[in-house]
């Protein structure tokens, strides 16, 4: 099921997987990471990179339902997988409640860590509809932000969680 197909001799593979709900089949250099394929081959530049060594969390995406660091996932390992990036969060013009609250609370200053933060937060809210401040802090403990001091990010997540629970 997860075997790779090789084309053009060595160097390239055909990768077929689902990105933000859409099936994709694409030939990519076989040494590429998921991060590189998303950004360079699929034009999904919403996923960022800050270190490429798994140290900053900027490239967090959801792979088969769980957050991963796209910089440390070989693209070849994604055959058949479901990938979700920041580009898949909004439904048409309707922002995901997390996106909406991030915008409202000033939680995205430079916006560079934002995609990773949003996906880590989305994952948290899927398993915990009403997280405490401390649970939010723990869930985001691998996502560095240099602008905000995190506080407005927590507030945005709390407000989004409340909205998603129907509390407001």
């Amino acid at each position: 099921m997860r075997s790779e197909r090789t084309i053009d001799g060595p160097g390239k593979i055909v990768l077929s997987f689902t990105v933000n709900g859409t099936g994709v089949e694409i030939a990519v250099a076989r040494h590429k990471t998921l991060l590189e394929v998303l950004r360079e081959d699929l034009g999904l530049t919403g996923t960022k990179h800050g270190c490429e060594l798994g140290e900053c969390g900027a490239c967090t995406v959801i792979l088969d339902g769980a957050p991963v660091l796209a910089c440390l996932v070989p693209a070849a390992a994604c055959t058949g997988a479901r990938v979700e990036t920041v580009e898949g969060m909004a439904v048409g013009p309707a922002l995901h409640p997390l996106q909406d609250e991030f915008a409202e609370a000033g939680a995205a200053q430079c916006g560079y860590c934002t995609s990773g933060m949003l996906l880590a937060a989305k994952n948290l809210l899927e398993s915990n509809r009403d997280p405490t401040r401390d649970e939010i802090r723990r869930a985001l403990a691998g996502n560095l932000c240099r602008c905000t001091g995190y506080l407005q990010i927590y507030e945005a997540i709390e407000r989004a969680a409340a909205r998603m629970r129907g509390a407001t």
Binding site: R39, E40, G43, L44, T45, G46, T47, K48, H49, T85, V86, E87, M89, A90, L95, Q99, D100, F102, A103, E104, G106, A108, G111, Y112, T114, S115, L118
Partner: peptide, 21 residues
């Protein structure tokens, strides 16, 4: 008020220099 670029930032649409091709 929201920032004028807030929606771009939360949807990953802001183009940083490294995003250009």
């Amino acid at each position: 008020h929201r920032k004028v670029d807030a929606t771009a930032k939360v949807t990953g649409r802001t183009l940083f220099a490294g995003d250009l091709s």
